[in-house]
Write a protein that binds this DNA or RNA. Structure first.
Lengths: 132, 132
DNA sequence: CAGTATCCTCAATGATACTG
DNA sequence: CAGTATCATTGAGGATACTG
């Protein structure tokens, strides 16, 4: 997902599913939340955990998670700056989601040795054809 | 998430989390999978379940889910056409994820009465400021 | 019924450089 | 250390119309 972050949710009943993933879309959010399950982390600690995330994107995702009430940002008034991120109480309620994602990924990561990338030209069509 | 669908996963250990959400990003995928938990559905049945999805997007998402091996597409050779979608065995292993998403959404959907949309101008800053 | 075909937009992500 | 500030890209998603 990407564009319309939590839309209206007047749908039914998949809406609650949409609502939930809507909060963890964003390329890095679920991973950030997952790492915060283990405890409080500072900005650059998260950067080190997540390879290839730029400071801009990390800030961006952290801000959205904060706005959505999933994480708490604590700024210590000192120099050099110290900023800590941790899961909020609401954020901690996402643990089952995060753990099921992690569990599924661990169990099936072997399947993704060579990403396919959804290139139509290399489409391995698995469609079943049934005679009426 | 959106752009780089399952990248390389040589990271650790959040990679497995990325791998998992990478398959259910896409604006409608998780909802489609959720509805298929209840059983086989035809193209237009899914359309009716998911309001506001255009045929183009639905086809698109279904194709990617099929390519990722999460759903099975069955075409009946008859007129008018009949095409059924169902979860593959692998797709069914995502049930815990889907159910935890659904559960979280149901428990917290009240929080999203008026979506915020992450507009910086209306940012309710929750950051804690601590004197060193 | 189950899609295709086009065209288009913009928001999400990225690259790079700079700073209190 | 923990970010900002700019600029550029691109492709996911949408609108609309058509079809075997």
């Amino acid at each position: 997902m990407a564009k319309a972050r939590h839309s209206r949710f007047d749908c039914s009943p998949g809406c609650s599913v949409e609502a939930a993933i809507g909060l963890i879309d964003g390329k890095w959010k679920s991973v950030i939340l997952f790492h915060l399950l283990s405890g409080t982390l500072r900005f650059n600690e998260i950067r080190r955990h997540i390879v290839n995330v730029t400071p801009r994107m990390l800030t961006n995702q952290l801000r959205e998670l904060e706005e959505d009430g999933l994480i708490v940002r604590t700024v210590y008034a000192q120099v050099p700056p110290k900023v800590e991120y941790s899961l909020s109480e609401l954020g901690r309620t996402m643990e089952p989601i995060l753990l099921s994602l992690k569990g599924w990924g661990d169990a099936n990561i072997s399947l993704f040795g060579k990403p396919k990338g959804h290139d139509p030209r290399e489409r391995a069509n698995e469609t079943q054809r049934v005679n009426a």
